[in-house]
Design a protein around this nucleic acid. Sequence first.
DNA 1: TGGATATATCTTAGTTACTAAGATATCTTC
DNA 2: GAAGATATCTTAGTAACTAAGATATATCCA
Lengths: 150, 150
Amino acid sequence: MDDNSIIESRKLSQQYAYASLQMHEAIARKAGFSGTDHKYLGFLLQKGKLTAGDLAELSGLTTGAVTGLINRFEKKGLVKREYDESDRRKVLIVADYEKIVKILEPFYRQFREESEKLLATFSAGEIATIQSFLLKGISLMKATHNKFKE
Amino acid sequence: MDDNSIIESRKLSQQYAYASLQMHEAIARKAGFSGTDHKYLGFLLQKGKLTAGDLAELSGLTTGAVTGLINRFEKKGLVKREYDESDRRKVLIVADYEKIVKILEPFYRQFREESEKLLATFSAGEIATIQSFLLKGISLMKATHNKFKE
DNA sequence: TGGATATATCTTAGTTACTAAGATATCTTC
DNA sequence: GAAGATATCTTAGTAACTAAGATATATCCA
């Protein structure tokens, strides 16, 4: 294939990431999450359990900011603080999965359904291609992220 | 193809968007942009010229916040304010494309090159599939965004 | 025309969430 | 068990946001 279609694809993937960002932000606002909280709630859902320090590391926030973040989530009843048995300095942030999903689910349901409908229009082979593209892209972006963080 | 691979693909596309977000944030920090400015600089680069009101609309910020945003960019010499001839209430934000690219380019160069290398490993047909997937995804996310904004 | 209303941006006051630095509590090491 | 390391929290100060109102310009219509 020619260079143009490659460059165009790269730009498309940029637009894809961008559209996703915008959509998630709009949903966050609608769901009543101010600022960036929605983003970090994603970490918590993904990981389930996480120490405050890990969240600071993952998010790039200072530990002080993370304390505030946890306080806000705790006040809303979305997470609980638990203290690590084997190292009582550590604070485990435990996400209330059910509760968080219950809040976000209504906003994402239709999107998720239509995403799956969209994917179902592709053949098995095409799906494999798409998955391969996504996987390789993810690993490239993670590598770039690691290169620049800190 | 089976349902599982569809669901897995949807999750992958979620991770893809997420990895992109994280990478861009790390680069923004590295390039000296605090907070969310980098994100809005993207709008400006994409559009070239934009009124303050349009930027408020696009970003979801209040007009007051946009005034502050423009002031910060202007202070760094990244944009200029121009007043619309035909409607002198309007403030056109004109991006200094060269200057902005000069700041961001070094951070994105390698990523861009490797993205293109990655894409070049796919056949023309596969690229077409990927493009189709990205395009349809973008339009679905935009539709979802429009549904929820405001 | 000109007065009323609408629109685009800016300003002000108050709030929220951030950072940096230091305090506190706990763990590890020697 | 004292010294230092580590994990989180607290405090003080700052940056960037919102909401509401001010200002300047445009539009509409009697």
